[in-house]
Amino acid sequence: DDWEIHFNNITIRLHGVSEEQIEELKELIKNGAHEEELRKWAEEVNR
């Protein structure tokens, strides 16, 4: 699925990401992940 997530003036566009991966991302954000951590997560997902 395609997703677009907005938070802290950042837009993250995701393509072909599962519901499970979105839940992981929500947890990262909820736990106060920094932009660098989110980038690493996105790189892993996009492999």
Results as ranks from 00 to 15, higher is better:
residue 5 I to T: 03
residue 35 E to R: 04
residue 4 E to N: 07
residue 39 R to V: 12
residue 34 H to R: 13
residue 12 I to K: 04
residue 3 W to Q: 04
residue 37 E to A: 11
residue 2 D to F: 14
residue 36 E to T: 08
residue 29 I to N: 00
residue 36 E to N: 11
residue 17 V to K: 02
residue 40 K to S: 06
residue 27 E to Y: 13
residue 15 H to R: 11
residue 36 E to C: 10
residue 28 L to A: 01
residue 47 R to F: 14
residue 31 N to F: 07
residue 41 W to K: 03
residue 2 D to G: 12
residue 29 I to S: 01
residue 33 A to L: 06
residue 47 R to T: 13
residue 24 E to R: 09
residue 36 E to F: 11
residue 3 W to R: 04
residue 8 N to S: 09
residue 17 V to H: 02
residue 31 N to Y: 08
residue 30 K to F: 06
residue 18 S to Q: 04
residue 46 N to C: 14
residue 21 Q to L: 12
residue 41 W to P: 00
residue 16 G to I: 10
residue 37 E to Y: 11
residue 7 F to R: 01
residue 44 E to V: 06
residue 5 I to C: 12
residue 14 L to F: 04
residue 46 N to Q: 15
residue 20 E to F: 10
residue 11 T to F: 15
residue 44 E to L: 09
residue 31 N to W: 09
residue 41 W to Q: 01
residue 44 E to R: 14
residue 38 L to T: 00
residue 45 V to H: 12
residue 4 E to L: 11
residue 37 E to N: 03
residue 7 F to Q: 01
residue 15 H to T: 10
residue 17 V to C: 05
residue 14 L to I: 08
residue 8 N to P: 06
residue 41 W to T: 01
residue 16 G to W: 14
residue 8 N to D: 07
residue 36 E to W: 14
residue 40 K to P: 00
residue 47 R to A: 15
residue 20 E to C: 06
residue 23 E to V: 08
residue 22 I to M: 09
residue 31 N to V: 04
residue 30 K to E: 06
residue 7 F to L: 09
residue 18 S to W: 03
residue 19 E to Y: 13
residue 24 E to I: 09
residue 38 L to S: 00
residue 26 K to M: 14
residue 36 E to H: 07
residue 37 E to G: 02
residue 25 L to H: 00
residue 30 K to S: 07
residue 31 N to H: 06
residue 22 I to N: 01
residue 27 E to K: 12
residue 10 I to H: 07
residue 30 K to M: 11
residue 23 E to G: 08
residue 29 I to L: 08
residue 28 L to K: 04
residue 30 K to H: 06
residue 25 L to E: 00
residue 10 I to T: 07
residue 6 H to Q: 10
residue 3 W to F: 11
residue 1 D to I: 15
residue 5 I to D: 02
residue 35 E to D: 06
residue 30 K to W: 07
residue 21 Q to G: 02
residue 41 W to V: 02
residue 32 G to M: 03
residue 12 I to F: 05
residue 7 F to C: 09
residue 20 E to K: 10
residue 16 G to F: 14
residue 8 N to E: 08
residue 6 H to D: 04
residue 42 A to H: 04
residue 30 K to L: 09
residue 19 E to S: 11
residue 14 L to K: 01
residue 14 L to P: 01
residue 32 G to S: 02
residue 12 I to S: 05
residue 19 E to Q: 13
residue 31 N to D: 04
residue 19 E to H: 12
residue 24 E to S: 08
residue 2 D to S: 13
residue 44 E to C: 08
residue 20 E to I: 09
residue 31 N to C: 09
residue 33 A to D: 01
residue 1 D to W: 15
residue 29 I to P: 00
residue 30 K to Y: 06
residue 13 R to D: 06
residue 26 K to E: 05
residue 28 L to G: 00
residue 29 I to C: 10
residue 31 N to K: 10
residue 11 T to Y: 12
residue 20 E to V: 09
residue 40 K to T: 04
residue 34 H to Q: 13
residue 8 N to R: 13
residue 46 N to V: 12
residue 9 N to H: 09
residue 42 A to M: 12
residue 4 E to K: 08
residue 34 H to M: 10
residue 41 W to C: 02
residue 25 L to S: 00
residue 21 Q to C: 06
residue 1 D to H: 15
residue 30 K to D: 03
residue 47 R to N: 14
residue 38 L to D: 00
residue 33 A to P: 01
residue 20 E to D: 08
residue 20 E to Y: 11
residue 45 V to N: 07
residue 18 S to P: 04
residue 14 L to C: 07
residue 7 F to K: 01
residue 42 A to P: 01
residue 19 E to K: 14
residue 1 D to Y: 15
residue 4 E to Y: 13
residue 9 N to M: 15
residue 33 A to Q: 01
residue 19 E to G: 08
residue 37 E to P: 01
residue 30 K to T: 04
residue 5 I to G: 02
residue 2 D to T: 15
residue 16 G to P: 03
residue 4 E to Q: 08
residue 6 H to Y: 09
residue 25 L to G: 01
residue 4 E to M: 12
residue 4 E to R: 11
residue 6 H to P: 04
residue 9 N to T: 10
residue 23 E to P: 00
residue 14 L to A: 02
residue 1 D to E: 13
residue 9 N to P: 02
residue 17 V to P: 13
residue 43 E to A: 10
residue 25 L to C: 02
residue 47 R to V: 14
residue 26 K to W: 15
residue 5 I to V: 07
residue 26 K to C: 13
residue 14 L to M: 06
residue 40 K to M: 07
residue 22 I to V: 07
residue 20 E to N: 09
residue 43 E to H: 06
residue 12 I to D: 01
residue 21 Q to F: 06
residue 22 I to H: 02
residue 20 E to M: 09
residue 20 E to S: 14
residue 27 E to P: 00
residue 2 D to A: 11
residue 16 G to M: 07
residue 6 H to I: 13
residue 28 L to C: 01
residue 12 I to A: 05
residue 12 I to W: 02
residue 34 H to E: 12
residue 8 N to I: 09
residue 29 I to D: 00
residue 4 E to T: 13
residue 15 H to V: 11
residue 32 G to E: 02
residue 46 N to S: 10
residue 17 V to R: 03
residue 40 K to L: 09
residue 27 E to F: 15
residue 26 K to D: 02
residue 39 R to A: 08
residue 45 V to W: 15
residue 13 R to W: 10
residue 41 W to L: 02
residue 35 E to G: 05
residue 31 N to T: 06
residue 6 H to L: 11
residue 28 L to F: 03
residue 37 E to C: 05
residue 2 D to H: 14
residue 18 S to M: 04
residue 24 E to W: 08
